[in-house]
């Protein structure tokens, strides 16, 4: 999953040689557009900022207040971070759900809750394939890390999009997000995953630091990537507030 999201730039390259595919996509795209009311960029930005703050506080401030830190008590800290950021993500993103007239808010939150175990299993599997140790103690750590990363990647999409396979496919396999909301979802998920991937790089170095252990540096990478994406997308929205809506119109036409 992580690597699947490695390339956000994918669309730059797939665009050239896949004219017909693009056309099909555009068709499907306009169909979807018809019955979708889009939340505005400002609201997305606020939700993102809220989530980013939640994650940031959850990883650094709250554990520090309680006398924990990620390096010495990774499991506890991850648990606190998850417990703090998950409800924030769940509730704030459910205000952004698609088709709010059909889908009540509790249902959006509920499907987010449902997606969590699936995300945890998938993320644990991927983490293990990438070389996470498989002893019992490490498995507990892997589980907590997987909970955090799936809360940051899978859950928001599940809350907002729900079970629409075509949208998932479009977001994660083709990386062709549409509109500010999807861009935000896609960007933050990819950034968190890539951050985690990059976070593993210092692990083999022989510096013998505690933070090099699994899953400390990967967690830093995940959260770092996520926060970067939040900052980037907020900055981007505020910069092109006017331009983006015009562009949207052009695209539809």
């Amino acid at each position: 999953m992580e690597g699947a999201k490695v390339e956000t730039r994918k669309r730059e390259f797939s665009g050239k040689d896949a004219g017909s595919v693009r056309k099909q996509i555009a068709d499907a795209h306009t169909q979807e557009m018809v019955h979708r009311s889009k939340p505005c960029a400002g609201k997305v930005g606020i939700v993102q900022a809220l989530c980013g703050t939640g994650v940031f506080l959850g990883l650094w401030f709250v554990p520090a207040m309680m006398g924990y830190n990620l390096i010495d008590q990774p499991v506890e800290t991850l648990r606190i971070c998850f417990a703090l950021s998950f409800p924030v993500l769940l509730i704030s993103y459910s205000t952004l759900r698609l088709q709010p007239e059909i889908c009540p808010m509790w249902w959006a939150a509920f499907r987010g809750l449902l997606s969590l175990p699936v995300g945890i299993v998938a993320a644990s599997f991927v983490g293990t394939v990438f070389g996470a140790p498989i002893s019992y103690e490490s498995a507990v750590k892997t589980f907590h890390w997987a909970a955090l990363i799936s809360a940051l990647t899978v859950v928001p999409v599940a809350v907002v999009v729900g079970g629409s396979w075509s949208t998932w496919h479009r977001l994660f396999a083709r990386t062709e997000p549409d509109g500010p909301l999807e861009l935000a979802l896609c960007l933050s998920a990819h950034c968190a995953a890539i951050g985690s991937w990059v976070g593993a790089w210092p692990m083999p170095l022989d510096w013998e630091r505690r933070w090099q252990e699994w899953p400390v540096c990967c967690t830093y990478g995940t959260v770092g990537g996520y926060l970067l994406s939040v900052i980037f997308s907020i900055a981007w929205y505020s910069a092109n507030r006017g331009a983006s809506s015009e562009g949207e119109k052009k695209k539809v036409n």
């Binding site: 992580e2 690597g3 490695v6 070389g131 994660f172 396999a173």
Partner: peptide, 28 residues
């Protein structure tokens, strides 16, 4: 030198990454 010692893990990690790339292709 640390990475040379851990080259096996490095290769496995990169293989895992490329397997993700393939997974993405196949899902696509």
């Amino acid at each position: 030198n640390s990475y040379i010692v851990a080259e096996e893990s490095v290769i496995n990690y990169l293989m895992a990454s490329s397997s993700i790339v393939y997974l993405r292709y196949s899902i696509k």
